[in-house]
Nucleic acid binder design. Structure first.
Length: 426
RNA sequence: GGAGAGGUGGCUGAGUGGUCGAAAGCACCGGUUUGCUAAAUCGGCGUAGGGGUCAAACCCUACCGCAGGUUCGAAUCCUGUCCUCUCCGCCA
């Protein structure tokens, strides 16, 4: 969420930003409501002050008749105050509603464009896409060969888009989680296992708007809880309402959680297999920091993602996400796209990780601030998130890139300590 | 799920209708004193919004888990809700 004062004072820039991000805006209406609201607030405070004065004076009046007269005056002020209060609250609600829908301001270097076609490739990983001397299979074909992925069972028990992982693929899944968590622990990230559900208010704070018709979110009936679409939600919510000390920052955490996504409206681009599913496991990185350091930390998250996928020996490219594809909260976003030999005709890049600097957009909604020693007042922290390993897509990348001619799969050496074997299948 | 207790400032903890934004202690910051440390002593010490100032001082408003209600006036009374603790039941 953007600061109201900022919106009022920079209306033109906010509008331009919305246009570049492809988000409809009502900035003019917001400015209008907000200016009216401030007037109401002044009047409201004035009435409160008068009513307080009257109330205070009553206790000191010795004469009963005089007290009654003052009481009547107090009642009158109170009624007028209530009326102004209602008007103020209505304006406040309208401002807030518009404000919630405005996206974060984009980084000046973020490529401007409508969608992912405008993304700019920044770099490539250490490993180039492999040239196969046999017909490469996709991950579903490999999985079928060894009975590793059971979508039919998932559909029977739960519904389309759900699946069972089975056999050795489970070992690979667990090994990837352990690998990621260990690598992050080594880099100063505190490992956590987060709840898989969160309060709707937290989802809203992070920037997922639950329960609309376009929602990506599963809600729990008769409650204010939803299944999380990413641990970003719970990790970001972890310090909601808190005032941190600057010396605690940056706070680096990683969280393992399940991720649930309805993928409403995505039926047409469902893709094959594990690429777009309703549930997967993810190891997520999250950080809280100061405005001065968030950009450097964003680089760090990107760098870690690169190191993990280099270690897994998976070819990838890094892209700088275009304004139209940033979503609401991100100020800037980098994606890692892994080469997936089984996608499309002869392979395609597919997003496997994503890291965003959300600046103070989430912290303002979640009210996460920090205090500087010797300075009065508080500031909003900057929040950042990044995927370490999204299991479903990482599994695709590993199966498809490391498959051998006989359908077995070579295990990259970084996973050997966690997997206890060098080949899967057979 | 049942029964009870409680949620007050960084912490402990007073406060049951009228200058209470809130006693006191601890912690913290600053001054004084002391050869150093410790101790003593004085002062300061919440957040947010608005006004004011070159900057401050200062002024106003809101906030005692949260949301409502009663009242001229609520931390204090009422209702709902969330959370914590204790005991019982159930249970991986």
């Amino acid at each position: 969420m953007l600061d109201r004062k900022f919106i009022v004072e920079n209306a033109a820039a906010v509008k331009l930003n919305c246009r570049q991000r492809g988000v409809p805006e009502q900035v003019d209406a917001l400015v209008n409501y907000e200016l009216q609201r401030r007037e109401k607030l002044k009047r409201l405070e004035e009435l409160n002050r008068l009513a307080n004065e009257v109330a205070k004076s009553i206790g000191q009046l010795p004469d009963a008749a005089a007290r009654e007269a003052r009481k009547e005056e107090g009642r009158r002020l109170r009624e007028e105050k209530d009326q102004v209060q209602r008007e103020h609250d209505e304006l406040d609600r309208q401002v807030h509603e518009i404000q919630l829908r405005l996206p974060n301001m984009a980084h000046p270097d973020a490529p401007i464009g409508d969608d992912d076609l405008a993304n700019v490739e920044l770099s490539r990983g250490k490993h180039a896409p492999r040239v196969f001397d046999f017909p490469a299979l996709d991950h579903l074909q490999i999985g079928e060969k060894w009975s590793w992925i059971d979508f039919e069972g998932g559909a029977r028990t739960t519904g389309a888009g759900f699946y069972f992982l089975k056999g050795e693929l489970v070992l690979l899944d667990l090994a990837l989680q352990q690998f990621a968590v260990n690598e992050l622990l080594r880099r100063g990230y505190t490992p956590t296992i987060t709840p898989d559900l969160a309060q709707d208010s937290i989802l809203e704070g992070i920037g997922f708007l639950p329960r609309g018709p376009e929602t990506q979110v599963y809600s729990i009936h008769d409650s204010t809880l939803s299944l999380i679409g990413t641990a970003e939600i719970t990790l970001g919510g972890l310090y909601s309402g808190q005032v941190l000390d600057e010396t605690q920052l940056p706070i680096r955490i990683c969280g393992i959680s399940h991720c649930y996504r309805t993928e409403a409206g995505a039926a047409g681009r469902a893709g094959r297999g594990l690429y777009r599913v309703h549930q997967f496991t993810k190891v997520e990185m999250f950080a809280f920091t100061t405005p001065e350091t968030s950009e450097a930390l964003h680089e760090e998250l990107k760098q870690i993602e690169c190191e993990l996928f280099d270690a897994l020996e998976i070819p990838y490219r890094v892209v700088d996400t275009a304004t139209g594809d940033l979503g609401g909260p991100a100020h800037r976003k980098f994606d890692l796209e892994a080469w997936m030999p089984g996608r499309g005709q002869g392979g395609e890049w597919g997003e496997v990780t994503s890291t965003s600097n959300c600046t103070d957009y989430q912290s303002r909604r979640l009210n996460i601030r920090y205090k500087r020693a010797g300075e009065k007042g508080t500031h909003y922290v900057h929040t950042l998130n990044g995927t370490a390993i999204a299991l479903s897509r990482a599994l695709i990348a590993i199966l498809e890139n490391h498959q051998l001619a006989d359908g077995t799969v070579r295990v990259p050496s970084c996973l050997h300590p966690y997997l206890g074997r060098t080949t899967l299948g057979g």
